[in-house]
Design a protein around this nucleic acid. Structure first.
Lengths: 242, 242
DNA sequence: CGTCTGATTGAACTGATTCAACGGATGTGG
DNA sequence: CCACATCCGTTGAATCAGTTCAATCAGACG
C-alpha cells in the first residue's frame, strides 16, 4: 500500500513511524470483496476495523419493505468502524459498490496501535467525529435541499474527499456510482436523478458517465449546492482545502 | 442533580464512585440558557463539554438562504460534544428549545475524568457512537419515509430516549417541541406537519399538544414508523428496551 | 387590552414519483 | 461468434405528496 494516502492524514501529521506501524498492520490480512456484495450485515457483531485499500463501499439501511437508504460512502484511505468494537451489533450494513479490497485489522492489534501512538489515537477520534459530522450534513442535505442541490452537494463532498487522498486528476475523478446508487444516497428515485443529471449537464456543471465524473468549475458547483466544507474538518495538516 | 439519570447509564453500569466523580464536576459550573437562545454557534471553537441537566436543546444547520434543518435533539442526561474538543470549529449550532440548564465541564477536568475511570471513558465513546448512529438513522428517516412515518419515527425515538433517562410517565411525557421544530427536524413544512399530526390523532396513534405527548400504543406507533430501536444501542444495563 | 407566537384551514400549485416501455452496453454460455 | 440475459440509463404521461401563500384563530404574556 505504498501509494495509499490515508484519510486520517488530513487530520493529523503522521510520523514515518506511525505510517510504518499502520502499514505493517494493513499488510497482515487483506480481503477482497466482489462488487455489490456485503462486507458487514445489519445485526452482525462487529469484529474488526477495516482500512479501505481499493474500491468504494457504502453504508446503507434497508427497511422491511425493501426501501433502501445509503447513509455514507467509503473511499480508499478511509478507516471504517474504528469505534464499533464497543457496540454489540451493527445497526446498518456495509456493501461493496465496486470490487474492493481492504485490510482487516484485528481488535487487539488496533488497541495496541492506539496505545503506541497518541497521534494516531487522536486522528482516529477525529475520524469518528468527521464521520458523524458527515452524517449530520447528509440529514440537512436530504431534509432541505432540492434534487438539483442535493446531487451537487454529494458530488462536492465526494470530490473533495477523493482529492484529500490524492484520488482526483485535476478536475475529474473515477466515480463508480450508478444513478440508482445516487438516488438511494440522496433520497430520490433513479428516474428523477437521471432527469436532474441531464439538467446539470445542460447547465455545464458536470459530466458524468463511464464511471468518471468531471467537474469543470468546482466553485460553481459549490455555489449551487450551498456547499460549506467546514463539516469535513480537513486542513489540519496537508490535503485541503485548496 | 441527585435525581438526574445520565444517558450514559444506558450504555454502562457506572459505579457509585464514577457517579460521584461526575456529579462533582457537574456541580462546578451550572449555566442557564433562555429558550430559543443559542448555546454554541456554527464557527465557534468548542470550549467545553456540556452535561444537560434540564430542558431540551437541538443541533441545527442554517443555510445562507435561511432554510434550517435540525439534525438532532438533546434531552436531560445527555452529554454533548464529548469529542469536539479535537475539532477546530463547530460545523453547526446548538440552540435551546426550552429554558435549559447544563453543567459545563472544562476540558482539563474532562480529560482527568476519562483518565480516572475506564468505565466512564468507554461509556463516552459509546455515547459518541450512538450520536453518530442517530444521525445516520435520521438520514434514512428523512430520505425514505413519508411524512406520516417520519413523524412517527421521531416520536418513537424521543420517547424511548426519554424513557431511558426516566423522563416518561407511563405512556406520556413532557414534550416541548413546536410544530415548526418538528417540521425542521423531519424536513417538512409546518403546515404539512400540522395536517399529518391531525391524521395521526384521528388514527388514535397519539395526542400532542400543551407540551405533552401521549402515545397510547407505542408498539402500534413503532409499526407504522418501521421503528427498530437497534440504532440507539440501549440495553447494555438498565433502561431499555422494555 | 394589545401583541406575539404557534396552530389551523383552504386552494392553487409543483417537484418528484410511479409505471411502463425501450435502448444500449456488457457479459456469458453454447 | 451469435443468442440471450442482465444491468443501467433514458423517455413519456399520469398522478400525488408535500409546498406555497394567505388568511384566521387561540392561547400566553406583559
Amino acid at each position: 500500500m505504498g501509494a495509499l494516502k490515508l484519510s486520517l492524514e488530513a487530520f493529523a501529521e503522521l510520523s514515518s513511524q506511525d505510517r510504518t506501524l499502520i502499514e505493517r498492520l494493513a499488510g497482515k490480512s487483506v480481503r477482497e470483496v466482489a462488487p455489490r456484495r456485503d462486507l458487514v450485515r445489519e445485526g452482525d457483531r462487529p469484529r474488526a476495523v477495516a482500512l479501505m485499500l481499493e474500491g468504494w463501499a457504502c453504508r446503507y439501511k434497508q427497511f422491511p419493505d425493501g426501501r433502501r437508504q445509503i447513509v455514507g460512502f467509503h473511499i480508499p484511505g478511509d478507516l471504517c468502524d474504528s469505534g464499533l468494537s464497543i457496540v454489540r451489533e451493527m445497526d446498518h450494513s456495509i456493501g461493496a459498490v465496486t470490487r474492493l479490497s481492504y485490510a482487516e485489522i484485528g481488535l487487539a492489534d488496533f488497541e495496541a496501535l492506539i496505545a503506541q501512538s497518541p497521534v494516531v489515537a487522536r486522528a482516529l477520534r477525529w475520524n469518528e467525529l468527521v464521520n458523524a459530522a458527515i452524517a449530520r450534513e447528509w440529514v440537512a442535505n436530504v431534509g432541505q435541499r432540492s434534487a438539483y442541490e442535493r446531487l451537487a452537494h454529494l458530488f462536492c463532498e465526494l470530490f473533495l474527499r477523493l482529492k484529500a487522498v490524492g484520488l482526483t486528476d485535476g478536475e475529474s475523478c473515477y466515480f463508480p456510482l450508478t444513478q440508482m446508487d445516487l438516488a438511494s444516497a440522496v433520497g430520490l428515485t433513479s428516474v428523477h436523478v437521471n432527469r436532474t443529471l441531464q439538467e446539470m449537464r445542460r447547465d455545464g456543471l458536470l459530466t458524468f458517465g463511464f464511471k468518471r465524473l468531471v467537474i469543470p468549475d468546482l466553485e460553481a458547483l459549490k455555489r449551487v449546492a450551498m456547499f460549506n466544507a467546514n463539516y469535513l474538518h480537513l486542513g489540519m495538516s496537508g490535503g485541503l482545502p485548496d
